[in-house]
Design a protein around this nucleic acid. Structure first.
Lengths: 145, 145
DNA sequence: CTTTAGTATGTTATAGTATAACAAGTCAAT
DNA sequence: ATTGACTTGTTATACTATAACATACTAAAG
């Protein structure tokens, strides 16, 4: 349920203090957290205003370390191992499975889907840049309970 | 660019006055509109407060007549012909291509992708309920300019 | 009728999400 | 020691969405 990323990044990334605080907080749960939840959690560390959180989220997002779940207005730390095999996934294709039961999120590599998406786009002459796929439903555990 | 749906629905749907106003306003553009843009547009028709808009959007969404674009916090009228062949698409799989250049949106049937998504989900034991796919990029027209 | 129940509407207030704009501190490289 | 790039702190405000309550319309049941 919990996993720590800390500072051991697979690539050089000079994490500033605020960026590290936010990333560590996100890494401590596989449940998405809203910007204001992060703010509450990090108040003791000296973060007091929304822009501090949003700036960190933007930097981390730009560097592929966190993802925004658009349908939940919440954020999660990127699990590199499953979403892009250890590489940065800033512009990669990921699929998010959001459990409406427990609130947990599974992040899965979606390169296989990317082909289909691009094929669809080509029929429109559309040049795809980023793709966001969010699936709502019930995780394995929540189906049995 | 503009298309009118008006009251000619392919199935019986008793559109209330407010629901019809919002649907017609959305149908007049292939660009997504925010709830507050809709509110501004419909003030002359007597709509003055956000709940009136959000209630209509919820009803229209529940009945498959409009979609929310999660990554844009905006709404579009469902184009039945392309997204689900004339049937209601409340729980169907649609793909949205959002042009970051002109702001236009293309809505495309994504049943082909649904299989892949469900297959991915099955490897996790995940029971998919609704899938939202939003692709950002450049439409054909905006690539040439 | 008129009562009731379900739906639709109107309205105020507030909660939740995100950014603009400005001020100031840090720190390495001239 | 000064510049310049980056990071941080802070206030105020904009944007998105819903809670809660009050009223009205309409069709069916009594």
């Amino acid at each position: 349920m919990t996993a720590s990323v800390s500072t051991a990044m697979p690539f050089s990334a000079p994490l500033s203090r605020n960026n590290k605080l936010v990333l560590d907080q996100l890494s401590q749960s596989d449940k998405p957290q809203s910007a204001y939840e992060l703010l509450d959690s990090l108040r003791d560390e000296g973060l007091r205003a929304p822009p501090q959180i949003y700036r960190a989220l933007k930097w981390l997002g730009d560097h592929g370390l966190v993802h925004k779940l658009e349908s939940a207005n919440a954020y999660i730390a990127c699990v590199h191992a499953s979403c892009c095999g250890g590489a940065r996934c800033a512009s990669s294709h990921t699929v998010f499975f959001l459990c409406d039961g427990c609130g947990g999120v599974e992040e899965v590599n979606g390169d296989a889907l990317a082909n289909d998406v691009n094929a669809l786009g080509k029929t429109l002459g559309f040049a795809a840049h980023t793709t966001n796929i969010e699936v709502h439903g019930q995780c394995a555990a929540c189906q049995t309970s």
